[in-house]
Write a protein that binds this DNA or RNA. Structure first.
Lengths: 130, 130
DNA sequence: TGAACATATGAGCATTCATTCATTTGATTT
DNA sequence: AAATCAAATGAATGAATGCTCATATGTTCA
C-alpha cells in the first residue's frame, strides 16, 4: 500500500544480483497505473453487462433503432421474461433507457457513449490483424 | 431468419396504421447489423475475461511491465493459486503469454491489441462527460 | 367493466464460476 | 539426492447468475 522507491533504472528483465523472492521494481512500476477500486468496479460492471450473449445482442440490436420488448424477444428468440429481466439490468447500469407508448415500452441506448464504446469494441475485435 | 423488405422509409418511431403486434420494420433494421453467433461468442469471451476484478487487475498490472506469478500475487493481494488459475484462463483466451526463467514464469500481455483495447476501454469509461 | 395484450417482477432451479485447500510438477541449490 | 522454492492443477465449496414459470401491473379496446 505504501510507496517503494521509484527506481526504474533496471528497465529490462535481467536480474542483477539476488532478488528477495519477488521483483519490487516491476511491482512498483505496475503499481503506478493500477486502477483504483472504484475504477475497477465501474469497468467490471460494464464488461459484465456485455459478457452475456443475451445482453450483448440486446445492445447490438439497439444500435440503429429503438425496439419494444416483444420486438427484442422475437428478434433474439428469447422469452419475453428473459429479455425483460436483462433489460432491467441494462437499465440499472444506465446502458439503455425506455419510453412508454401505450402498451409498449420502447427501449433505446442510453447515449452515444454506449453506442461508441460498443462499436469501438466490435471494430477492434473484428480487425483483421487480430 | 429469412429476409423481409428493406423498407426503411418510416424512419421515426411513429406508427402509421395497425401494427401486427410487433414492429417488423424496426426488427428488420436491427437485424441488418446484428453480430453473427461467432462474433457474439468472441465478444462475450473477451468481455467475460475483463468482467472479473482479479483478471481485470492482472491485465492492468501487465500494461507496463511483465510480472511473475508471485509479483502479481503480492501486488493484488490474492493467493498464488487464485492468480495462477486466472492466468491460465487469460492464457487460453490469448490475452497473456509467459516466458520461463528459472523457477519463475514471467507473464506479459499477448500483444498490443490487448493493450490498446484495454487502454481505450479505460479511457472511454473515464472520460469526464460520462 | 371485462377481456386481451405488453411488460415487469418474484421465486425457484440449474449452471457457471472464483476461490481455497491439498497436492503435484519442475527447477535450483546445497 | 534432499530440500527448497515457484508455479500449476484437481477437487470441493459457496456465491453469483440466467432462465423459466407463475403472477402482478398497467394499458387499450370492446
Amino acid at each position: 500500500m505504501s510507496i517503494h522507491s521509484f527506481d526504474l533504472q533496471n528497465d529490462n528483465e535481467e536480474i542483477c544480483c539476488d532478488e528477495p523472492s519477488t521483483h519490487p521494481e516491476q511491482i512498483a512500476r505496475a503499481k503506478l497505473d493500477l486502477p483504483t477500486d472504484v475504477e475497477v468496479q465501474r469497468l467490471t460492471e460494464i464488461f459484465k453487462a456485455l459478457a452475456d450473449p443475451t445482453r450483448l445482442r440486446i445492445i447490438a440490436a439497439l444500435m440503429h433503432t429503438e425496439l419494444c420488448v416483444d420486438d427484442l424477444s422475437t428478434l433474439l428468440g428469447m422469452s419475453q421474461s428473459a429479455v425483460s429481466h436483462q433489460l432491467r439490468l441494462l437499465r440499472h447500469l444506465q446502458l439503455v433507457q425506455f419510453r412508454k407508448e401505450g402498451k409498449h415500452s420502447f427501449y433505446h441506448l442510453n447515449d452515444d457513449h454506449v453506442r461508441d464504446f460498443f462499436q469501438r469494441s466490435r471494430d477492434h475485435l473484428n480487425c483483421p490483424s487480430k
